[in-house]
Amino acid sequence: MTANWASNGTVNMEELNELELLKQVKRVDAPSFLQTRIEARIQQAAEDSLSNGWVWSFAATVALLIVVNSMVFLNVTEDVSTTDSGAYTITQGMGMNISNQLYND
């Protein structure tokens, strides 16, 4: 690398010395407590993903219940309201009586 730099022509000796200083930086051992912390974090992440699963399935069940209930409710109200139906509009347009009282009693 030193030869490369010299042939490059853009780097002077001063900078070379500066970077030589970086090479003198000693390698350090990772602290021994890191492994325990990492294991704890992995375990915590596994537990979190498990509880997340429960949260999502609960939310999906509630959403499904709401959808089913609203569909049932809409069907019931549709059956009840006869005035909104197409048949009612046609009979009204043709001036027909839709009453069950046939003899005007």
Partner: peptide
């Protein structure tokens, strides 16, 4: 990993 005597210079780099 930085030796005390080189600390200032290394920090600058």
């Amino acid at each position: 990993g930085v030796q005390l005597e080189n600390k200032e210079a290394t920090q600058r780099i």
